[in-house]
């Protein structure tokens, strides 16, 4: 029983993390059909913003020293800022280009950010202890659950409902949904393209920052590579959820997290290092059966 509860908390928190990352990808894809390969690097950027720039092996806290009430909004703002800046510098000039060209440009941009981080911080992973108290376990339903896992699950729920409310109830949310469905028609009705796109990038960047904070607290490491793996999972979740569908991305993010945790628990010991290979193969097999995505009605045409 307690094992099962443990599994549940693991799956819910990992799934929540993946869902947030997938939302960040799906938001931008929705409004401008861009598969943003720089997203993982936004995450890495936010992680490294916590520590003082240096190539030394030991990390010295920089922003990470600030109290949570200041730190969280600052990092979220920083994530939003780098995403908006990348739109302004790169993607704005590719608005008329086809999605493939935008995708390659984002890949190049991600590579630039990654190498800039490598040059300033060095290539070795660094130990970072942000809010170490959060890893103390709490007993719930017979499982000992790190406080952080509870916080992750709660904040995921908070972020997802917050975003849903924003999209459903606010002016910018309405404009984003309209633009995602038919950008030209929305503009003909006076919706400002720049406002919608900037808004989507800002939200996406803030989501990347939230993912960064959670990951760094959970793992205690700052590593340039940490954005790449979760971005791949996020991509897979957005495809699995049906490209462009936000609820689909959230659901698929959770699903991938759950399957990943279950594989980790049930795979024989010698097969565990290959977990991700099993996971991705499973995903490709799923897509064979439903190429339009799992959470999209079969009648829907692929959007790209």
């Amino acid at each position: 029983m307690s094992n099962l509860a443990q599994l549940f908390f693991d799956a819910a928190s990992l799934g929540g993390l993946y869902a947030m990352a997938a939302l960040g990808i799906a938001l931008i894809f929705g409004v401008m059909k861009l598969v943003n390969f720089a997203h993982g690097e936004y995450i890495a950027f936010c992680v490294f913003a916590l520590i003082v720039p240096s190539t030394d092996a030991v990390a010295v806290m920089f922003l990470g020293k600030a109290p949570a009430l200041i730190l969280i909004p600052v990092i979220l703002g920083l994530g939003a800022a780098i995403a908006v800046a990348s739109e302004y510098v790169v993607f704005r000039h590719l608005r008329k280009a086809d999605p493939v060209a935008m995708m390659i440009a984002s890949f190049a941009l991600g590579f630039v950010i990654r190498n800039a981080l490598l040059a300033t911080y060095g290539g070795r992973p660094k130990a970072v202890s942000l809010w170490p108290g959060l890893n103390t376990p709490v007993d719930i339903a017979g499982a000992s659950v790190p406080l952080l896992q509870l916080i992750v699950i709660l904040s995921t729920l908070l972020v997802v409902t917050g975003l849903a409310l924003l999209l459903k109830k606010s002016r910018i949310g309405l404009e984003m949904r309209a633009a995602a469905e038919n950008f030209t028609m929305a503009r003909l009705l006076g919706v400002r393209a720049n406002r919608v796109i900037t808004g989507a990038f800002a939200l996406s960047g803030a989501l990347a920052a939230a993912v960064a904070l959670i990951m760094v607290t959970q793992t205690g490491v700052a590593d340039v590579r940490m954005g790449g793996q979760i971005m791949l999972v996020a991509f897979i979740a957005t495809v699995l959820g049906g490209l462009g569908s936000l609820p689909g991305a959230v659901a698929a993010g959770f699903l991938v997290g759950i399957v990943s945790v279950v594989l980790q628990a049930w795979l024989p010991l010698e097969a565990r290092p290959f977990r991700d290979a099993f996971l991705y193969t499973l995903v490709i097999v799923c897509l064979l059966v439903r190429p339009q995505g799992l959470f999209v009605p079969a009648s829907a045409k692929p959007r790209v």
């Binding site: 309405l174 404009e175 949904r177 309209a178 469905e181 038919n182 028609m185 929305a186 009705l189 919706v191």
Partner: peptide
Amino acid sequence: FGSLTVEENLRV
């Protein structure tokens, strides 16, 4: 906008 409600269409 097929996925928006009738009223949302009016409000865009």
